[in-house]
Design a protein around this nucleic acid. Sequence first.
DNA 1: TTACATAGTTCAATCGATTGAATAAATGCA
DNA 2: TGCATTTATTCAATCGATTGAACTATGTAA
Lengths: 340, 340
Amino acid sequence: MASRPTLKTIADQVGVTVSAVSLALRDDPRISQATRERIQQAAQVLGYVYNRHAAGLRRGDSGTVAVCLNDLSNPFFTEFLGHMEARFREADRMMLFCHAHETPSIQARFIRQMAEHGAAGLILVPVAGTTREDLDGPQVKHLQDFPLVLISRDVADTGFDRVINDDVLGIRLLFEHLYEAGHRRFAWLGGGGDTSTARDRESSFRQQMDAVGLPVTSDSIHHGPTTLDFGDSMLKQLLAMPEPPTAIICFSDIIAFGVLAACYRHGVRPGVDISVTGFDDMAAAAYSAPALTSVRVRTDLIGQCASELLLSRMAGERYPPVRKVVPPELVVRASTGPAA
Amino acid sequence: MASRPTLKTIADQVGVTVSAVSLALRDDPRISQATRERIQQAAQVLGYVYNRHAAGLRRGDSGTVAVCLNDLSNPFFTEFLGHMEARFREADRMMLFCHAHETPSIQARFIRQMAEHGAAGLILVPVAGTTREDLDGPQVKHLQDFPLVLISRDVADTGFDRVINDDVLGIRLLFEHLYEAGHRRFAWLGGGGDTSTARDRESSFRQQMDAVGLPVTSDSIHHGPTTLDFGDSMLKQLLAMPEPPTAIICFSDIIAFGVLAACYRHGVRPGVDISVTGFDDMAAAAYSAPALTSVRVRTDLIGQCASELLLSRMAGERYPPVRKVVPPELVVRASTGPAA
DNA sequence: TTACATAGTTCAATCGATTGAATAAATGCA
DNA sequence: TGCATTTATTCAATCGATTGAACTATGTAA
């Protein structure tokens, strides 16, 4: 019956004006200690709930942060989500969340909606194929000068802050590890999507092959989605080749797990008969059978760095766009070994 | 420089009043086709962005939905998140997201904040140990009569809607499968937390043991966190027992994966030397080495049902609190086999 | 005592969209 | 032509918090 108490309710109760209540509740020193306490007390008793719509309307934004990801089924991305959520919670920011499923229209809609909500900043793993135009074009005026940090995937020529993994380095580390172990027949699996991640990792692989004088043929490059199933089904195909690869470099851990599962069924021993590597080093990599050699992407550093950057932009800091590249680390486990 | 256009900006441009613009943009039939089009056109050109603070202030709520989970590192929960996100997106609802990390204070704060934001509904996986008081007590007045659906974990005696998995049935299916395969020495791993899930699964295990006349001793029950590491480290301990179990029933897939990893290292063959079962049937269960026998929790059905329920409550539907229990399915794979 | 600073509080305008009531204009009908 | 009805639009109040300016007691210095 009694609708939600407002500043007015409290003001009447205590015998002051709404202004006094507003100031008191935000601990403004202009209000005396004594009244402030009486007001806060009354708010407590009445079960007052702050109305952010009213505040946001007056102040212009809600302080909310928006986050948009593309693949919730990949723990790699939920790790990001976790790290950023923690930082934003610490800064007392609420989070609007969107799962864009690699769908440009969903991403576009979310960007519009978060603007409607008066979000104060946006963290985005851009949908595959996102262009400068999508973020910087005329139909997204609200993103001009808007705090926006891109993570994980880069979009060229944007004036936005970006925090990404050094994918080129990651593949180099894996390749050198395998090359030094004597491997000469390599296969690359994955990364079909139109993302900087896919491009950079694959081109780094090609570059490494070039550097040691190995030819890159259609037998060495295989595109497919980032799924367990892709890795699983590819193994059979690779083994059926006249000269099967001795080392399989996968675009991500997920694909590598699929390969390991197929190895198990085919009685092929990863790390002995064949070497398999992942990328991302998600938690499960240490516990697969066998444990997976991978490249640890520092989701913690990237997530922290991105949220820090966003918060500083939200605080009004002005500096040229930052492009931060975080180096990953090689983690050698049992899925790789010397070439047979 | 030019600040965001408002209804007024458009009104001036077109030569009508804000009321007309407001109505036109929401396709109200009161405004003629012709003016409506001119207005919508102008809005487009000016790059108008709807201000939900203003609308929310006037209307009383923002239509936003709040979702609070506890373990992002567990794909089981992110599956829920995905299913619900999809349904809410379809209903054009934005999602406020919180990761409570099993921490009551975070959960409590989120509940307050989502109320401040004028969220219209809440989906909650209650933090372990959440009581009726936490959701129904005097300090959360705003939850009285508020659309709230609990998922996955039950909280007794609340007047809220709940959608949960039939954990008792799930364990029964696994137990019967193993018992019929000849197993008589069972170990239960996991579920240390104070949740209905942990309680129901464990008590179902005890019940099954009772039913077939097997004693439950301290050797058969082992509590620990839902982590890969717990499963991994427990295996060694179990094998060291004078009469090791032939079947290990894990609280969740995560723990089972840890057990499988340890099996691999110890040269124990799951499905042959020992049987291991998970619970949840997350995507990776089909691809572990060996593939994991598990119980498929219908995160899709639960997620859909919960979002549907919430949306109907948000639409004002009144009916007694619903407690929906969704039956899971047994999925037999290679990690279980006849008792040695 | 007068003038003045200071602390504490109130005034009143403001943010932008919504909506029921009011008005104006156009149409139908006898 | 006059009156009722429908259609199109405007009026004006409203939601609740914020904030710079204004006011009112006090205390303080000259």
